[in-house]
Design a protein around this nucleic acid. Structure first.
Lengths: 228, 228
DNA sequence: TGACATTTCAAATGAACATTTTAAAATGGT
DNA sequence: ACCATTTTAAAATGTTCATTTGAAATGTCA
């Protein structure tokens, strides 16, 4: 029958609660291990609600990602509007801070990135859109920032590698959170606190600036080949 | 057409073929989505074989990880025995090469690390043992190497952060393989070739040396001989 | 060979689960 | 209040899958 395509305006609290619950459950257990029963239970809805509102479990999954992304700050809103253009180091620091916040901050639907982390291992069509809409812009912006470190034009490939080194560090603190906390003897459930993020920001920024300067020194100034 | 893997069917024991097949299937689909039917089919065994040899799917999972780890080169065999002690940069390069090889090389049961990548997101008891037996030694060794860059004794916390920056870069090329290849317009199934790994090694090493030197406030020119 | 253990096989069992169905209840417009 | 539409509720259906079963096949050793 004509299902009047409820637009997510208002009055759809059940639908919304289902999306929130689905986000957590999919993040916790993955698509297959997640059960509609648990999702509906968490949402305080009936077992038939998922198929009523979304038609299928699979469609709920994609709608959940779409929903999570709609609630996530975009690149432009995550980065400070006055991102420095004349001070590369400052711009890099601002970028890294924004990136770490996006990864590690506990606000916002924190389950979206955990779902996407699963997508990295086992891609579905949702990953392509995510790369295109989210990752590409972030990496593109970072590449721009890195480029400003050098007066000369660096090869695209090297800029990409540097950008990957920067975000790679950030990702490690995110993805290997469980490991890092266990190495520190802490409980995984605790997560990081804000001073941890501050520490990461300082460290990643300093480390990356050193790496970049050393690399573009080699490229532009034709540095001496070290003997070992 | 009937069965292409027959040559190994006769030679290898069914149990071993099940472990190999299970490794691939668990890595491809995760524990829940993996089916015993598919595992047995790939192993050329009957559907009842898993329960006959391993008792349950869950036990097969743990035995598979144990099996994969037994076939994986240890830290000591992965690192060159003559790991440099007087040249920190050379030692770091050797370490990074070994680490990238361990992550990205296509030899050996390549499925073990894919299974462990899933464990990072959704830990099971297997992760604790893996951290203790595999990750701790690697990180410990890297921390030692990093420490040799500085004549002064650096705080443990900073050494750990630096080590995490180094392996974080390597991990990014591994975990975000799908993304990097897609950004390059390549198909994910292709994977990296050996020249890619060479490129990563050079880049990560140079970037990290720059980062380390800048953090400890020392240029490559000041080379210090430490007396023990 | 013949007894005995081990391994393989096809079919059966039963549990978990997504999805459908049916009907009742709530809601909104007139 | 009345009717149409939307939402909730509980039970039913059918599928997928892990696990069990019992018999057949294969191997072992006297």
């Amino acid at each position: 029958m004509s299902r009047t395509m409820i637009d997510s305006t208002d009055r759809d609290s059940t639908r919304k609660r289902l999306l929130e619950a689905a986000g957590e459950v999919f993040a916790d257990h993955g698509f297959h291990a997640a059960t509609i029963q648990l999702i509906c239970q968490k949402a305080g809805a009936n077992i038939a609600a998922v198929n009523y509102y979304f038609g299928s479990k699979e469609n709920l999954y994609y709608e959940t990602i779409k929903f999570g992304r709609s609630k996530t700050a975009s690149l432009d809103s995550a980065l400070p509007p006055e991102l420095s253009t004349d001070d590369p180091e400052k711009a890099l620091r601002q970028f890294i801070r924004a990136y770490l916040d996006a990864l590690l901050s506990t606000e916002r639907p924190k389950w979206l990135l955990r779902i996407m982390a699963r997508e990295f291992i086992e891609p579905t069509p949702a990953l392509d859109r995510f790369i295109e809409d989210v990752i590409q812009p972030w990496m593109g912006r970072l590449t721009q920032i890195v480029a400003t470190f050098s007066p000369a034009k660096l090869p695209e490939r090297q800029l990409n590698l540097i950008a990957q080194s920067v975000v790679g560090q950030c990702h490690f603190f995110f993805k290997c959170q469980a490991v890092i906390l266990r190495l520190r003897g802490k409980d995984v459930k605790d997560g990081y606190d804000s001073s941890d993020i501050d520490e990461f920001e300082k460290h990643v920024t300093a480390f990356s600036i050193g790496g970049i300067r050393s690399l573009i020194g080699q490229t532009t100034a034709d540095k001496i080949h070290r003997s070992n």
